[in-house]
């Protein structure tokens, strides 16, 4: 018990110390992106892995957080923390909006709704280009910090907090009921659990962290853009990261995100082909090891 705590502490300290052991600002930047994508993928895993909801549109929630915060900053000139809060709120409202059809629809039908939600958000951003900046993106006047290390600590802090909360929730009775409801909603209902309440809570929680990370990403990148935060391709990255790392583990998706972004950077000299290689490795992994990286690490006796 004591030993394990020490290992957790050492790993986190090692990550926290990364900026001080001579790693370049560029790698700090890569680690920062890994943290953001890690939070996106963890939040998606809560919905999919536990609640059994195939959300094709994680970028709907991320995008709401990003544009909510970006608009509050660029158009209303509110202070940065308030902008982040507003963006998060927008994402939570979006999560509630998704929860309504989720309670009625199953599988591909719900998946399509989430996909359409992304497309509609994208259309709305382009149609109201006057306020949103359209496809060119929205430059925000405020940023988290000009210092790469400080930005990294913000992202790492977010990752640790989101990870702790989501893991605690997932491993509690809440997570178990959610899983039961995801597999057989009627039976869970029959056992006396208020499935609706749990599902809504899962959507709110997932949306909260997706939106928060999306909002903070805006102030890290200095711009909110369809391409970086809303596009279906962003959602695909998130889903691949989660499935690749090991669904229903919360931590696994972070590994998936680290792989996707890390491999993308390492293979950058290959240019475009790097994308094919990364996708092929991911495809091979899920074909051969469906439980993802974490399933591999945990050995074969796992769910």
């Amino acid at each position: 018990m004591k030993n394990q705590r020490i290992i957790v502490a050492i790993v986190l300290l090692a990550l926290a110390a990364a900026p001080w052991i001579g790693i370049s600002d560029y790698i700090i930047g890569v680690l920062t992106m890994i943290c953001f994508y890690g939070v996106f993928a963890m939040s998606w895993d809560l919905l999919f892995g536990y609640a059994g909801e195939v959300n094709f549109g994680p970028s709907f929630l991320i995008g709401l957080g990003a544009y909510g915060a970006g608009l509050a900053d660029a158009d209303l000139g509110l202070p940065l923390p308030l902008c982040v809060a507003l963006g998060t709120l927008a994402a939570v409202l979006g999560g509630l909006l998704l929860a309504i059809p989720a309670l009625r629809l199953r599988g591909p039908y719900f998946g399509l709704i989430t996909l359409v939600a992304v497309l509609l958000l994208q259309d709305a951003i382009v149609i109201f280009a006057g306020t949103t900046g359209g496809e060119i993106g929205l430059s925000v006047p405020d940023i988290l910090s000009v210092n790469a290390t400080v930005n990294f600590y913000y992202a790492l802090g977010l990752l640790v907090i989101a990870g702790t909360v989501l893991l605690t929730v997932a491993n509690s009775s809440f997570g178990l009921i959610l899983q039961a409801a995801g597999q057989d909603a009627i039976e869970a209902q029959a056992l006396g659990f208020n499935v609706v309440k749990y599902k809504i809570a899962a959507f709110v929680l997932s949306a909260f962290f997706s939106g928060l990370a999306g909002a903070m990403l805006v102030f890290y990148l200095g711009t909110a853009s369809v391409d970086a935060m809303v596009d279906i391709a962003v959602g695909i990255q998130v889903i691949i990261a989660a499935v690749l790392g090991g669904r229903r583990t919360i931590i696994g998706p972070v590994l998936g995100a680290a792989f996707l972004i890390g491999a993308g950077e390492i293979l950058r000299p290959l240019g475009q082909v790097s994308g094919v290689v990364v996708a092929a490795v991911a495809l091979g992994t899920i074909l051969i090891f469906p439980n993802g990286f974490l399933g591999l690490l945990r050995g074969r006796h796992s769910a």
Partner: peptide, 18 residues
């Protein structure tokens, strides 16, 4: 179902980039 979705999605991405 989810694995088929993810698998074909990845395959589509490979074809697209290729």
């Amino acid at each position: 179902e989810l694995f088929v979705l993810t698998g074909t999605l990845l395959w589509g991405v490979m074809l697209q980039i290729g």
